[in-house]
Computed example of a mutant assay.
Amino acid sequence: MAVLREWGLTLGKWAGRPVARVYEDSGDPEVRRVREAAAAADWTTVRAVLEARPESADRTELLWAVGDTAGVERWMPAVVEAEPEAALPRLVAGVRHISWGWEARTGARAAHVSSEQFEVFHARLRTAERWLYEAAEREPQWISPWYGLQITGRGLQVEKTVARRRFEATVRRDPHHLGAHQQRLQQLCEKWGGSHEEMHAFARASAFGAPPGTHLGQLVAIAHIEHWLALDSGPDGAYMARPEVAASLRQAADHSFRHPDFVLRETWLPVVNTFAMAFSLAGDRVAARECFRLTDGCVSRFPWYYLDSSDPAAAYRKLRSSVGR
């Protein structure tokens, strides 16, 4: 499709139908490059890739590619020590410790996480906070340190006022930063001490407070998915079947990816994939087929891992088939 060709994504076809494939890096070759450099402990290349993507262009995905790479925690402290005035090594070390912390905690519900796991989790997050604050002090206009502090704050269960201020610090530097808004939405989820009402209100205010074509429209779809996930089997389907749910999704889609001003930048693929999942669960087959047609088999890990963490593409294919695409 034209959308995918413009973004540089190509897929093989089987019987005329797109083959679903997970794109870990949203089609951005620099993500793979920086991940490979991190795995090789090649700080020169890691730094070059990150410095080439300014904060104003949102280098969140690049940072996570490094942060999610095993072993980075072993060699980054030496880089930090060798560059005592530099912010970037501290930022990278902080992001790695966030990911490393969640590796210790795992994605299990709190009731199934041991006290020993929580101890390691919190220790790593506290180290991450130290690095991130030091990065923020050295580069006061950078967005990424404050984005990271939103995540550590949720894991360390900081007070609600502190959590809100960290979000505000992020959006003062970039009012429409998608990652910052996604993290704030998680903070307002019921599972993190918020409520469905707070979550939905924030999602709508953020999406419709942004200019038409915004990627923040995804927040509305995420909020409905999070609400669905919080319910037991039976009530979850009844919730998504409410006419007002599909109506709010259509309204958000019109203000977001359906709008002529929607820009094909790095986050477009998970945005449309999120709407594909939400519309499918809501039973809006026409709107869901539109999203599957746009993604054309290009699968982002989020949000499909909610349905199948080991094979997000299988979850994509299952719902695509359910709506007749």
Rank of each mutant, 00 (worst) to 15 (best):
D236R: 15
L216C: 09
V271Q: 02
E51Y: 02
F118M: 05
H224K: 01
R33E: 15
V31N: 10
L88W: 10
G71H: 04
E6I: 10
W228R: 08
G148C: 06
D25R: 10
Y23S: 11
P77S: 11
Y147T: 13
G27W: 02
P211W: 03
W304E: 06
H177N: 12
R301I: 11
A210C: 04
R74T: 05
L149G: 02
Y305Q: 06
Q187I: 13
T295W: 10
A39H: 04
R301F: 01
R165P: 01
A15E: 06
V171C: 04
E290D: 11
L63V: 13
H97A: 15
R53T: 15
R184K: 14
D261S: 15
Y306F: 13
F202M: 07
A86C: 11
A48W: 05
D25N: 09
L9S: 03
V263A: 11
L307D: 04
V72Y: 00
M1C: 05
S280T: 10
T127I: 06
S195R: 06
G297L: 06
L185M: 13
G283Y: 03
D254T: 10
R53Y: 05
W131F: 15
S56W: 09
P175H: 05
Q251R: 13
W14N: 07
A223G: 04
A111Y: 03
Y316D: 09
L281I: 08
A104P: 02
E103I: 04
W100S: 14
Y316E: 04
E266G: 11
F302I: 00
E30I: 02
V31I: 13
K160L: 10
P89Q: 01
R166F: 09
A52S: 14
R204P: 00
H215E: 08
A136I: 13
F279A: 12
S114H: 10
L231Y: 08
G107L: 06
P175S: 06
G324M: 05
F262A: 01
R265C: 03
V72L: 01
F118S: 00
L216T: 01
H259L: 08
V49G: 11
L185N: 09
G297W: 04
E73F: 00
S280W: 07
R250V: 13
R105I: 02
R5L: 08
S233C: 04
T214W: 01
L219Y: 10
G217L: 09
G237W: 02
L249Y: 02
R265L: 02
Y239N: 07
Q157I: 07
L294F: 01
M240P: 03
R5S: 12
Q187N: 14
T161Q: 12
L11H: 09
A205V: 09
Q150H: 03
R126F: 07
